[in-house]
Design a protein around this nucleic acid. Structure first.
Lengths: 181, 181
DNA sequence: CAATTTATGTCAGCCTTGTTGACATAAATT
DNA sequence: AATTTATGTCAACAAGGCTGACATAAATTG
């Protein structure tokens, strides 16, 4: 026995490394990367009295304008009671508005206002800058590989749901191009 | 004016896409990837009555056995009161034990027990499998690029802190190389 | 048409995990 | 001897998840 620990309850002094057949390297990198990735918008959100939950809602309403409450719940995978709290605030503050569904009048289509659009852009800007920097300094050639890797991390059933610019379905392209940015 | 919305407060019907100069594609992929990445261990944690906070503590105590409470707080970037709750549970359930610091007897060095080591491995296993699958199906050649990209997403000041197997500083290299993967 | 189902909203309460502030203790440092 | 440091602990609070229950309006079905 090479190790000092013998009895259950004794301290194990050896570090857990990749030798156990587990990819701790990427597990840990993913944790730190995501933590810092979300810290950028958290600053801005604080000024509005909003949190991460608001960010997610603003993001997806801007990415898929006109999606219904049910569709948003499906994307976020939270309950309607959880959504209700933050959605109400975003509606009250004029970032999002609801429009009665044209086919089905029970549905509420969600749209950003100009204010909501501006917020979504302000929140995404630092994240996009961080990504650009990481790509530039670390993987200028490998954007495609990174997108495929991230998509590969998503549960297969839900991959089609992702409105990827480069990767996915293109079903959300009913607006003509605009000249923003 | 090409758009229907004119007044502030009106619904914006056009989707926010990458044409605004923002990398929504990777922003969104990162969100979904991380969500599913964390959902694997969440299942297991539920059976123990633990949450994500416990996972993080168990993970880092196994990765850096003997680290002090202060060091763990630094890594996790949470307050000692937040840590205390989950750490106490992990100690009470025999997953982690504290050893009085040899040099400084005020310090508490944290070590996993065999039970804690097993839990860390059980939690990491599905995550590692997901990563392996994503690499295999999406970027077999590009592990290095992906590690560098993820490291590039981390705040520069904290990169040295990450005990990277392949990418980082080497300060944690008291174990010889392994043949993982 | 009446009954049922569906989409949404809302109330109430609970849990986890983060926060701040205050205070206690023991050990190290000055 | 006084101060600082590492840790622990108590209390209160907030965000954002959850479940369960119930209400309403609109669509669907028998």
């Amino acid at each position: 026995m090479t190790k000092a620990e013998v009895r259950a309850g004794d301290p194990i002094k050896s570090a857990l490394t990749g030798e156990d057949g587990i990819d701790f390297s990427i597990i840990e990198l993913f944790f730190f990367a995501y933590r810092d990735f979300t810290s950028d918008p958290d600053q801005i959100l604080g000024e509005y009295g909003f949190g991460r939950a608001h960010h997610r809602v603003v993001h997806f309403v801007n990415r898929r304008p006109g999606l219904t409450v049910a569709e948003l719940l499906e994307v976020l995978k939270i309950t309607k009671q959880s959504l209700a709290r933050v959605l109400k605030q975003l509606i009250d503050t004029g970032h999002i508005i609801q429009v009665q569904g044209p086919r089905d009048r029970r549905q509420r289509e969600l749209y950003p206002t100009a204010k909501g659009r501006a917020l979504a852009l302000a929140l995404a800007a630092p994240q996009s800058r961080r990504i650009a920097a990481a790509l530039a300094e670390a993987a200028p050639q490998d954007r495609g590989a990174i997108e495929r890797f991230l998509m590969g991390m998503v549960n297969p059933e839900q991959r089609a749901q992702i409105a990827g610019e480069t990767v996915a379905d293109g079903d959300y392209r009913d607006d003509r191009e605009r000249e923003a940015g």
